[in-house]
Amino acid sequence: MFRIILLLFFSFTYIKNFTQIQKDTTFTINSEYKKNIKKYPFIKVPNIINSGSVKQTSNITYKKIKDRTLKLDAYINITKKTKPALIIIHGGGWKSGNKEMQKSMALEISNLGYQVFTIEYRLSDEAKYPAGINDLESALKFIIKNASKFEVNPSKIAILGCSSGAQMATLVGEKHPKKIKAIINIDGILAFHHPESQEGKYAELWLGGSYSQNPKIWNDASPLYHISKNSPPILFINSQFDRFHAGRDDMIAKLNTFGIYSEIKKIENSPHTFWLFEPWFQPTIKYTTDFLNQTLNKNN
């Protein structure tokens, strides 16, 4: 009997742990390609080639939580001179996606002279808000601590996010303006509870309940309510779908009162996930690097 009880205990523990580490894999480049190819039969997944100046190191541990490790990928432009850095946050409704989805973007931007990092963070099935934000803050701290190793100029760090990752990136940038000097928001909302917002179950899963249940958390997670005189300049790159930039115009109005620079670029006739595919990938890269060159003074 004791052996049976012991066996059941270990079996339950195994199943429990196995369940905990399962990740939602519904949001991938392949799933988005299949979703959009009928409407946009000309789309292609970018094939970015390393120019020879980029050293890629995958799965660098930046944080440990008990037996859980969180990792980042580094794309380092190999030169003696330190360079500005860009942190990239993947999307996926706070529930799915992974850092590898941003490989093409990271490699291309690193080819163009930046030290780039793509970040793994805890998704909503694993941990609720603000866990994912705390992870990104830890990654930022790790990069700054290892700035010399990564040949990063710690006074010139920008952050970019796509979709839900854009909301997260913008929030981190607004909360840490002394460390983040520029923000690129690619089709991400700025306010969860807003007339333009259509966030529902995915927001509730991440924020731990509905707005009526957790209004303070919904507002705290909204970058719109964290703007200050110290806010970094921000670039918005948006699709044709207004709901993916809920609160953007209100945010720009607030930034204008402090004289903080903002810019909007619109990708017409595209799917929401335009940044993953050509013919929109390269324009997205150009808008991003032009903005970074301007705000971070790359050559100084």
Rank of each mutant, 00 (worst) to 15 (best):
E268K: 15
F281E: 10
Y211W: 09
I21A: 11
F9N: 06
N17E: 15
I87K: 08
G92T: 00
L136F: 12
T25P: 02
P130L: 04
P215V: 12
Q56Y: 10
I78V: 13
K38E: 11
T257S: 06
N47W: 14
L190R: 05
K63G: 10
S138T: 07
F12Y: 11
H193Y: 15
S210M: 08
A221S: 05
D67E: 11
N30R: 09
K23C: 06
G93C: 10
S96T: 03
N299P: 01
T289W: 02
A246G: 03
H272C: 09
I267G: 03
K149G: 01
K35F: 12
N300C: 08
I217N: 06
G132T: 03
A106I: 01
I189R: 05
F150R: 04
I76S: 15
F258S: 00
E100A: 08
I267Y: 11
L160G: 00
T288E: 04
L255G: 02
I159W: 02
R3I: 15
Q282V: 01
L7Y: 13
T118K: 00
S11G: 05
P223C: 01
G259D: 03
H226W: 10
I37G: 04
L205R: 08
N98S: 14
A253Y: 03
S148H: 12
G208Y: 04
E120M: 01
I143C: 06
T284F: 10
L7P: 04
K35T: 07
G161K: 06
I21Q: 15
V116Q: 04
K201P: 07
K35Q: 13
L296V: 05
F42V: 07
I159M: 13
S53V: 11
G92W: 06
K63Q: 15
N153Y: 04
A182R: 11
K71N: 13
K35G: 03
K298M: 04
W94E: 02
L235M: 09
F244D: 09
I60A: 00
Q167P: 01
N134W: 08
L86Q: 05
N146K: 11
V54P: 07
A131M: 07
T289L: 06
L171C: 15
T19P: 00
H90P: 00
G173M: 10
T118C: 08
E268T: 14
A191D: 11
F42E: 14
F27T: 00
R3Y: 14
D73S: 03
N98C: 13
W280L: 05
K64M: 13
P283L: 08
I267H: 10
F258G: 09
T273D: 15
E126C: 07
I186H: 06
N47P: 00
P279L: 10
S262M: 05
I15M: 14
S96Y: 02
S96N: 04
D220G: 06
A85I: 11
